[in-house]
Design a protein around this nucleic acid. Structure first.
Lengths: 189, 189
DNA sequence: GTCTATAATATGATAGAC
DNA sequence: GTCTATCATATTATAGAC
């Protein structure tokens, strides 16, 4: 009971991710992080010598990877623009549990330690999403510039719908937002 | 130097508001709250016997009042729908400093203590905003139901633009969002 | 109404055994 | 790689003087 990992890196990051995205950086304590991971604090420090800040950074890196694997890749491998929109919608509906769960990027944006490296990672993740969305709009016939603006509008709608749905305690705004996405990205208003 | 207030209630709440909206509930400490208010911790507890939680609650109540005074009222006293949109846009552009500052409602949505009364106040504030926005859309000729949906979309766009603008470190998404508002509320797409 | 002083607890973090 | 035990500090909060 010592030289083998009680929990593998991916499962560990998944658990930490869930805490950070629910309570944010300052709202999440080491005690909580230890509880959900099934590890003692000292063991967490063995895995993350940089402490809580490193945990959040790695969770952000993990999220970046998730965007590439679940969004960017599948969209690239899909030909029809309208099916690309479906791929995107389905993935975020699952990730955010139909608007009931919040976005890690928004939650970590508030962090007190935010002066550090979170800012970069959040920006990079958003840009990754914007690129994928712009790809869709360009496939639908929009010029690069116009496609970029529509991609931005979609990211705005997604983030906003998450805030409003949680604020109102209703999944309805998130679901209505999903219905607007094809019109924005494919231009069929 | 004892029986008179060093800082009046309104100015005090304004200072606390700025802290909570920048760092959120868990990210804001009593030390910080004491610093910005110019009061010692014990004095803060004299003004807010319920401690930090009461401070946040009263800041939320103060925000509710602000919405009524700066948004709901002026919109009711404006006749042209297109001018109502301008009133709304100008007020939020100022409140959020063109997208550089975050929304208190979003920040307190994350609070650990959120199980308590924040949830209600946040919901009430959002509903107040939705009513004002729906008023605009109805004035522009939309039916109650359609006006409600457009009001919701505007709230979503505002909240989302704040997240994206802060995430990307650019005011551009917020400004582009402002330009979309007339089209959504007045229907001139 | 504000202050100094202090308490009680929680927090992020480390030392060292196994 | 994980654990128990512990530390130093920061946090929320209170007592009591002026």
């Amino acid at each position: 009971m010592s030289r083998i990992k009680k929990i593998d890196d991916q499962e560990l990051l998944t658990r930490l991710f869930q805490l950070f995205r629910e309570y944010g950086f300052d709202g999440t304590s080491l005690t909580q992080l230890a509880e959900v991971s099934g590890l003692k604090k000292a063991s967490l420090y063995h895995r993350f010598p940089g402490g809580k800040e490193q945990m959040a950074e790695e969770v952000l890196a993990y999220t970046h990877q998730w965007i590439e694997d679940a969004i960017v890749g599948p969209i690239q491998n899909t030909h029809s623009p309208s099916r690309k929109v479906k791929v995107f919608s389905n993935e975020i509906a699952q990730l955010y549990d139909d608007g009931k769960k919040s976005c890690l990027l928004n939650m970590l944006l508030s962090a007190t330690q935010s002066g550090s490296s979170f800012t970069q990672s959040i920006r990079a993740a958003m840009k990754l999403l914007l690129d994928a969305l712009q790809n869709i709009a360009e496939g639908a016939g929009f010029t690069g510039k116009e496609a970029g603006i529509r991609a931005e509008q979609v990211l705005v709608e997604v983030q906003g719908a998450l805030v409003v749905s949680r604020g109102l305690g209703s999944a309805a705004p998130f679901k209505r937002m999903l219905k607007r996405l094809p019109g924005i990205l494919l231009g069929d208003e």
